[in-house]
Design a protein around this nucleic acid. Structure first.
Lengths: 120, 120
DNA sequence: TTTTTCGTACGAAATATTTCCTACCTTTGA
DNA sequence: TCAAAGGTAGGAAATATTTCGTACGAAAAA
């Protein structure tokens, strides 16, 4: 399933902090992102539960939500989709864009070189 | 300005084929992507012109549209935004995700190594 | 016990995006 | 000339997404 922009914000919170209540997610969004009403966050998370993007534990009155999929799995999917639509599926094109026009740091560059060499 | 999904499809055509008429863009979309009515493509391109995402040459009856921004500039912006929201701005995280879980081809890997080494 | 606080559910409104119908004009071809 | 083909413009409808007011129940505090 394809998370929307707002849904992605919520997923980020769940990935970073683990299973959470609506209250916690809403507070975090308000601190780290933008002003949003409790009932908006609630509604969105209910929709995400319907869609199967998150699971909901209803045993306690305060429902606890957690991501239905692994962070890496979802990110991989979104990354693949991004590469497909933007770079016709060519990962190397993306990386070249990333480093071709500077603005990406030297340390990142070194880190990646090391990483790639270890893949052998 | 932030192109939407459909707008991006249209931009792709313009980037790939250069300044084009609505007819050409619509035909290309129908061949390469999906069924869409002429008037839908027209409307979208009109909106894009209003937003300033594309420019329109009205000298001929068949208006000719072209991207307002360089392909690389727009792609850079979108890529940066993607890295920011998905990987907290860490380009190396993205690359690791890209190659960490295999599925990205060997030839891409070699290509990138060569590319990065030339940056010295 | 009564009031206040904190939760969920639900519907509706506000926005954003996409799609296409229809009117009307110009060009082309018979 | 005049019908057919092909253009643009604009509005309205269909969808998708986001936001939030309000009702109502449970728990906690007074």
């Amino acid at each position: 399933m394809e998370p929307t922009k707002s849904e992605l914000e919520i997923l980020q919170v769940l990935w970073q902090h683990g299973p959470s209540t609506v209250r916690f997610v809403n507070d975090t969004l308000n601190e780290e992102k933008r002003a949003v009403q409790y009932s908006s966050t609630l509604k969105l998370m209910q929709i995400m539960a319907e869609k199967g993007i998150v699971k909901r534990d209803e045993r306690s009155m305060k429902h606890v939500y957690s991501p239905a999929e692994e962070e890496s799995k979802t990110k991989n999917l979104l990354l693949k989709r991004f590469v497909d639509t933007m770079y016709k599926g060519s990962a190397s094109s993306l990386v070249m864009q990333l480093f071709g026009n500077k603005g990406t740091s030297e340390s990142d560059l070194k880190e990646i070189k090391d990483f790639l060499n270890k893949l052998d």
